[in-house]
Every structure is written in C-alpha cells, then in structure tokens.
C-alpha cells in the first residue's frame, strides 16, 4: 500500500500537495493540465526529487529518503528507457542485477520475459535495430523481470501511434494481471485512462486529489478538468 502523507512539493513558483492512500493492486491514471505537476508527482514517489514536506510510505515504511533504485518501484520515462549501446538481453538483465552478473536462472528469466512480450529471438539486437513498439516491449520485459510491486509510467508510449499505444497498454494490463502490481500512469489522453485504469488521480490547481473512479470523473468533470479536456 502506497501512502502520500501531507506531501508538499515546491520548485520555484510551482507548488503541489498530495495527501492520500492507494490500495495494493490499484490501477490509476494521473490526469491534469500541462504543467500541473503530474510528472513531478511521479518523480517524488520514485525518489528523483525531494519533497519540501511530508512523507512517502510503502507498507507503512517511510521511504522518503531512500535512493530511487532501492525503492519497490519500477519506472518508465518518456524517452531513453533503454541504453542504446547494450543489447536487448542486457537491457532486460539490468532489471535483475545492475552489474549484469546474471546466474543461469536469471538468464532464463530474461529469455522468458522476452518471450512473454513477443520478442523471442531478438535478444542479441541493439535497440536501434528495433521499431518503436519493439523498444517499448523491451522496456516492459524489464519491468516484468524487476517484479516490483509499484509501476510508474511517465507517458512512455506517447511517441507511438494510437493503435500501437493501445496494444502496449493492453500488454501492461496483462502483465499487471500476472504480477498484481500497483500502477500509476501519467497520461494526456482520457482514452488511456478508460482503457486500463479504473481509478484516476486528478492533478490540478496545486493539488493531487485522491484517486476516484475514472468513468464518472471523465463523464462529469470538475471545472479545472473540463477546461483541459475541452
């Protein structure tokens, strides 16, 4: 269970507060106007950016000061989710051991994960030799082997076409069915939220609101969201 306890975030003129709990296994979209702080909220949860006040707790444990790589979190960014100089297998293997000294079992786990995302036989390639959709699949294979209980997506599929993006979101949903992980997903597109996120965190006017059911929220949006959705 993730708990954001009286969290306050500030950077220059920008300010954001959050105070809510998320139950384990919940799937949430994070939606709001540009510049409202959706990515910043994820950055704070992931540990890239320190809050000025409040705490981030996981299963009751304070992890506000924990290094990003030591948190129970797997995260995908908008871009640069793969190292271009490493092979597909190595990029996935990093999720198991950052120094890539993998045991035979771990190597097998990497192969299985690549199978699972439909990249059987692509292990030796470099990311540049893959299409955009295939690159996303490699990143998802790494998420799979990392097997962390909290998955943060900061619009990693934004550069893909609509059909491909839908395909990736379905794959994410299928992977979550297997791992039971909690999902927080920044999105600009309400359709993404409807597709895989039963709940939505609205970030607007300096507040990240507690998750609420996605359907009713989008059908009957508050003024701040209505202005954004148009």
């Amino acid at each position: 269970m993730l708990k954001l306890e009286s969290l306050t975030i500030a950077q220059g003129d920008f300010a954001l507060s959050a105070d809510f709990e998320v139950t384990a296994g919940q799937r949430m979209a994070v939606i709001g106007p540009s510049g409202a702080g959706k990515s910043t909220l994820l950055s704070v949860i992931a540990g890239f950016f320190a809050p000025v006040g409040g705490r981030v707790l996981w299963q009751g444990q304070d992890m506000t000061g924990t290094a990003p790589g030591k948190r129970p979190i797997a995260m995908l960014f908008q871009d640069a989710n793969l190292f271009p100089h490493l092979s597909v297998t190595q990029n996935v293997g990093l999720g198991l051991r950052p120094d890539l000294r993998l045991s035979a079992e771990q190597k097998q786990a990497v192969t299985d994960a690549l199978d699972r995302v439909g990249l059987d036989g692509f292990g030796a390639r470099k990311p540049a030799a893959l299409s955009g959709g295939q690159q996303s699949r490699v990143a998802l294979a790494r998420i799979l082997v990392m097997n962390r209980p909290l998955l943060l997506l900061d619009e990693p599929f934004a550069a893909l076409g609509p059909a491909l993006k839908a395909e990736m979101l379905d794959l994410v949903a299928a992977l979550l069915d297997e791992t039971g992980a909690t999902l927080m997903m920044v999105s600009h597109d309400p359709e993404d939220a409807r597709r895989i996120a039963p709940h939505t965190v609205l970030v607007a006017d300096g507040v990240a609101h507690a998750p609420q059911p996605t359907g009713p929220l989008l059908d009957n949006p508050p003024p701040s969201l209505r202005a954004y959705l148009g």
Partner: peptide, 25 residues
Amino acid sequence: QDYGRLSLSLNMNGWTWLRLVLLPR
C-alpha cells in the same frame, strides 16, 4: 542528463555505472 534517472532507477552506481554506461557511451 539522458541516462542519469534510468541508471538510478535501476540502482546502477559507482563502478557498475562507469563500466556499463559511461565508458561505452
């Protein structure tokens, strides 16, 4: 700038980061 956050989220530090990320790049 490009790979700092990814490296951190994968817990790559010190020598590991030097060997697998910085030197090859």
